[in-house]
Write a protein that binds this DNA or RNA. Structure first.
Length: 515
DNA sequence: CCGGATGCCTCCT
DNA sequence: GGCATCCGG
């Protein structure tokens, strides 16, 4: 849901822009926003006959926008969400249930012959599945459009790419609908881009130095800015009741210090601050600062902003709030769209019934040919993820999940795959079919804090509760050594938890050692 | 004035 | 996901 009202609040710093401003540059695309809008045009088909040609109109929509960018000599870099996408938070759970209800009601209406009402309900039932993303990826590959599947949040991946130079695979701006990009400190964002290339632009640097409409961020650094966003409420942590963007801004603006803001808030009798709020706040800030992203160069996971080794050790047992680490082979497979980041399944080739070329309509192809893949290829992008060498990937596909099969991906199983996965290949090959991922890892435990419905997640929260936060600038400088024994036991607990899932994992391990 | 809850819209014609 | 609107503190 992003940060409620943040865009409206930031309106004075958002200006009209046309995409041609970025001619000759690389621009990142939050795939979810175009997928969702595109799906709206074929919601009924997606609900009733997901494998029909009509159900792929969302791909035409997407490619139209891609080709619009190419037409203006902008190089698109498409970024998909990775783990934990379908079961993000409690509110997502609610939405999911509402969508399922709409689907059922829609089918009823259709049977009754009330098409108009049915269409209305199907629109409310639209969901973006990994399968849809996978099908789009096949087209992006044939069209030589660069893409990457983020290990977790696409937003974090986009913010990371925005920090890199173009020759390192970086992007000059991000196209999205999601205000979270602001919280991640993304340098340049284009919101609400329409099919003609008009949008609204947010530039972080400009915002931090301009005074407008009584708003002034001149004394804000990135942490204060992100802190303001977290206070106003975000997907990871709901705001203290009564606090929205304006009060968040006032508080940060007044104290210019997060510790002070939090302690002031805690003492203020007008608000009831949950006991674990301050703790959670710092964790959330750590997620926005150090989220796991995929580094194309090293083909492994990195942190959005570097997390120094000593902090890594310090946080050892608690790093799962960033989502489990993934072995490079796995991170790579996810990033390249070969592995379903939610279920961790690869697939069987039989699940894919349509060849990529059949998925795209001819009009899209014509436009593509006009503006040409050629020029895109000649653009220097030393890091093109989807290279032709991977044509073998065409035989692999996401399991063709129906639009209705949400809950199987919303797995309550707790499994930290992460740092205990082997980093080297060494073992005999194992058939894909032996990969048994039914009990899939829950990718972002921190988010699950919002819905601690099962005992395991409660246990885990119990474990995290005793950890060594916060990571304020002050406290980071003086990490206490005396906590080492505590840390040790936490690590041990973590290890035990991981071992418990060893068997479930072994199939996966064997498979990935082969990669 | 401020924040929160609610309900409608995103496609394309 | 956003946005407009109305309502309650």
């Amino acid at each position: 849901m992003g940060i409620p009202n943040l865009l409206r609040f930031m309106k004075p710093f958002i200006e009209p822009v046309h995409i041609k401003k970025y001619a000759g540059q690389r621009v990142g695309i939050d795939a979810y926003s175009w997928l969702h809008k595109g799906a709206y045009s074929c919601s009924m088909e997606l609900c009733m006959s997901p494998k029909s040609a009509g159900a792929r109109r969302y791909i035409s929509y997407f490619m139209h926008h891609v080709n619009l960018l190419r037409h203006h000599k902008v190089v698109p870099v498409v970024v998909f969400d990775g783990g934990s996408m379908p079961c993000k938070s409690a509110t997502d759970e609610d939405r999911h249930k509402k969508r399922e209800l709409s689907l059922v009601l829609g089918k009823e209406k259709l049977e009754q012959g009330n098409t108009a009402a049915a269409i209305d309900l199907f629109r409310k039932a639209v969901q973006i599945t990994p399968s849809m993303a996978y099908q789009l990826i096949q087209i992006l590959k044939t069209e030589k459009v660069e893409f990457v599947v983020a290990p977790y949040e696409a937003d974090a991946q986009l913010a990371y790419l925005a920090t890199l130079d173009a020759d390192q695979g970086g992007i000059a701006a991000v196209i999205t609908e999601d205000s979270d990009l602001i919280a991640y400190g993304c340098t340049a964002i284009i919101f609400k881009m329409d099919r003609f290339g008009n949008g609204e632009e947010f530039i972080m640097e400009k915002t931090l130095e301009t005074v407008k409409d009584g708003l002034c961020f001149q004394d804000f650094d990135q942490n204060l800015f992100t802190g303001m966003c977290i206070l106003a409420g975000c997907d990871f942590l709901p705001s203290v009741p009564g606090i929205g963007t304006k009060r968040a801004y006032s508080l940060i603006s007044k104290h210019k210090n997060i510790d002070l803001v939090l302690s002031t808030l805690k003492l203020d009798k007008r608000y009831s601050v949950p006991d674990d709020y301050i703790d959670s706040f710092w964790k959330t800030l750590a997620v926005f600062n150090h989220a796991r992203v995929y580094d194309v160069k090293s083909k492994s996971l990195k942190h959005l902003k570097p997390l120094e080794e000593r902090y890594l050790n310090y946080l050892a047992g608690d790093l799962d709030i960033l989502g489990p680490a993934l072995a490079p082979s796995m991170a790579k497979a996810i990033a390249e769209g070969r592995l379903n980041p939610v279920t961790m399944e690869t697939f069987d080739e039989f699940s894919r019934t349509i060849s990529p070329i059949e998925l795209i309509d001819t009009s899209a192809l014509n436009v593509a040919n006009q503006h040409g893949s050629q020029e895109i290829l000649t653009q220097e992008s030393s890091i093109t993820i989807c290279s032709s060498e991977e044509s073998r990937d065409d035989s692999i596909a996401f399991a063709a999940d129906e639009i209705t099969s949400g809950e199987q991906r919303c797995n309550k199983g707790v499994l930290a795959l992460g740092k205990f996965l082997p980093q080297k290949h060494s073992s005999p090959a194992v058939e894909c079919k032996e990969v048994k991922p039914k009990n899939t890892p829950d990718n972002n435990p921190f988010k699950k804090r919002k819905l601690p419905t099962d005992q395991e997640s409660l246990d885990r929260n119990g474990v995290s509760a005793g950890l060594c936060w916060p990571l304020t600038q002050e406290s980071v400088a003086s990490i206490p050594n005396e906590r080492s024994s505590k840390r040790q036991s936490q690590q041990e607990a973590f290890r035990n938890k991981t071992n418990k899932n060893k068997d479930e994992r072994s199939g996966l391990l064997k498979f990935f050692m082969r990669l």
